[in-house]
Structure formats: C-alpha cells, structure tokens
C-alpha cells in the first residue's frame, strides 16, 4: 500500500499512556491534520512518525515498509518544528542546503536547488542573509523550504503556524495547502486550531486522551461528528439529552420529535444540533418552546440564546434571516430529524 500506515501504535512514558492503540491510514498525497487539545498525544504521534520517539508497541509503515525502528536520519522526511529550529549559525541559503550538504550533494546542485526553493517561497535573493534578520513569516517559509529540499516522502509539521499573528497565519494556511497540492506530497500537520485544520486538511484526525476519536474529511467531521467530544471540539454545537420511550418515540427535553430514531436497543442518547441549523419560530409552532435570554449581534451573524427548561440553546442566523425577537420573549424552536445528529454514547 502506498502511503503511511499506523498499526496499533502505543506510546507509554512510565505508567502514562500518551498514545493508545492508534490505527490510521494516510494514502499517498493526502494532507492530514491531527487536531486535539494539548496533551492529547498528537505531537507524540507525530514524533513517532518522525522517529524522534520510539513507539512502545505497534508498527509504522511507509509505502509498505516497516519503518518503526528506522532511525530518523534514514527516513528521508521533512519536518517543520514549532520553534522552526532554524540553525542560527547558518545563512538562509545554508539552512536550506543543509539536508543536501549532509547527503553530499555537489555544490552546484545545492545552489540550484536552493534557488528553486527560494523562488518557490518568494524569497529569491535572500540566500546570503542570516536567519536572525528575517521576519516571522519569512523564517516560517525558510523552515518549510528546508524541510522540502530533498523532496521528502513525508512532510511533517508540528504546530507550524502558532508563532505567527492571526492574519499571517490565515494567509500561510492557504499558501501551505496550495504548495502541498502542487507538490502532491503526503503531509501531516499537528495543530490545536480547528480553523487551520478545516482550511488545509483532506482528512482531519481528532484526538483526545491518546486515542483517535474520529478521522474523516473536514465536512464529515463537522456534519457527522462521531461523538460528543468531536462535536463539541469542532465548531459550536448544541448538545441535548434525548430519551426513547417504550414505543421507540424519541423525546427531547420532554417533547417528542417526529421521525427521529435512536440506534437499535438504545434508550438514551445525545443529540448534536449546529446553531445554524436551529430555526426560531413563533411560540408553539416548533417542536420546543423557550424564552430568549440574550441576543448577540456580531454584524455578520446573529446569535440568539434561548432557555428551555433550564437548558440553553444557541441559534445562529444571518442578517437577512434576522429573527424578530427581543430578550424575554417566548419563541418556538424547529428541530427536523435531518439536522439532528444522534451521537454514540
């Protein structure tokens, strides 16, 4: 199989299990974002792929070959660190040429490749500058160019954009994605920023507690979250407890919702409804009724907070569909089965 495969990978630090039985297939040319809160094991997983940490159990395969115990420097990969780790004693050109020099490439070939890469990252003519003289974004690009100098099989990035300011970060996200598509290189990015993941990834891997909670396309993750952790971690959502009575009729906050079913045999569950899917109606017209407690008008979107039997539900609408409500007013809430996701318990 071409691409990267993680099989039952385990990493223990003493009695602490940082990565727990991870299975993942990354087909060749895919852009994968590993997403999760800090301490979820995503960085450890990336370091094991790079060979900087050794797994306690399981195997890592690249294009069918077991590389679990291949030392880092023989894996032919490119990696960008959170600190960037540019070599302070080398110039921009020398930094980018480092992997070529280490492999004994001829001087002319090194220079040619460095020029190519500099033009790719829009820093033509910067070869002789010391890295200390570059701006944050420029350093970022140099780190990327250095990692790509040998056209690696695998491109790994650990929180690569976290040091940049918000605007530059968004621009770099787009640039990075376009670069990856142009080169067709298998790429794995570790991030805690879900926006970043949604922007760049073919596949988003959501991790928590050392385990993969869901690995799917960004839209799938958003639309069909596997569990309440994923639903809550990716975007905003309303999580509601649901119960099925003996006839199989499903109730939300004591009110039945037609056409909704729980998985066979389950009598309880959690429902995820994205705020943009919550429609306000006249009192009594929707499935549920509640009272408006707050309206947040952000210009581009309007968030309405509704209290139903002590539970708060958020509805998001665009200015065009602006609901005509005020705080304290009774409103109805329409819930249709197609916008409700019943989560695994």
């Amino acid at each position: 199989m071409s691409g990267l495969a993680l099989q039952n990978v385990v990493k223990e630090f003493g009695s602490f299990r940082a990565v727990n039985n991870v299975d993942l297939n990354v087909p060749h040319g895919t852009f994968v974002c590993m997403l999760g809160p800090s301490g979820c094991g995503k960085t450890t997983l990336l370091r094991m792929i790079a060979g900087l940490d050794l797994p306690t159990g399981g195997a890592i395969r690249l294009d069918g070959d077991d590389i679990t115990h291949v030392p880092t420097h023989k894996r032919n990969l490119g990696m960008v660190f959170q600190s960037l780790a540019l070599f302070p004693h080398l110039t921009v050109g020398e930094n980018i040429a480092y992997p070529l020099r280490i492999r004994g490439a001829a001087k002319e070939d090194q220079k040619k490749r460095v020029d190519e890469l500099l033009s790719m990252i829009h820093l033509t003519g910067y070869a002789d500058r010391p890295v200390a003289k570059l701006s944050g974004g420029q350093r970022q690009r140099v780190a990327i160019a250095r990692a790509l100098a040998i056209s690696p099989k695998l491109f790994l990035l650990d929180e690569p954009l976290s040091a940049l300011d918000a605007k530059l970060r968004e621009a770099m996200q787009v640039e990075l994605r376009q670069l990856q598509q142009k080169l067709g290189i298998t790429t794995i990015v570790v991030t805690h920023d879900q926006r970043e993941a949604m922007t760049m990834a073919d596949t988003v891997v959501v991790m928590n507690g050392g385990e993969i909670r869901q690995a799917a396309s960004p839209i799938e993750i958003y639309r069909r979250p596997a569990d309440s952790f994923v639903a809550d971690f990716i975007g905003q959502t309303n999580l509601l407890e649901v119960q099925a009575d003996s006839t199989g009729r499903v109730e939300v906050l004591g009110q039945p919702i037609a056409g909704l079913a729980l998985p066979a045999g389950a009598s309880k569950g959690t429902l995820s409804v994205r705020p943009e899917d919550v429609h306000l109606t006249a009192p009594g017209a929707g499935a549920l009724t509640g009272k408006v407690t707050f309206v947040r008008d952000l210009g581009g979107t309007i968030e309405t907070f509704v209290d139903i039997a002590g539970r708060q539900i958020v509805a998001v609408s665009t200015p065009r569909a602006r609901p005509d409500v005020t705080v304290g007013q009774e409103v109805g809430i329409a819930l249709t089965p197609d916008v409700c996701v019943v989560l695994k318990k």
Binding site: A50, G51, L52, P71, T72, H73, R75, N76, L77, G78, M79, F81, Q82, S83, A85, F87, P88, H89, L90, Y98, P99, I102, R103, R146, A147, A149, I150, L156
Partner: peptide, 28 residues
C-alpha cells in the same frame, strides 16, 4: 534549543553528524 539537533536528524544527519554540524558551530 534541543529541537536544533532533532531538526538536523530529520534533515538526514546522524546524531554524531548533528552534533558536529549543529551543536558545535552553534556554540562556537
């Protein structure tokens, strides 16, 4: 920065080579 040597390793330098091409020159 310990990631300097890690970076060197990911870029193809053995630990020994990383020591001589990164640690030593950086500490000149």
């Amino acid at each position: 920065d310990p990631t300097l040597t890690e970076a060197a390793r990911t870029l193809g330098a053995s630990p020994l080579k990383a020591f001589f091409t990164v640690v030593v020159p950086a500490l000149r």
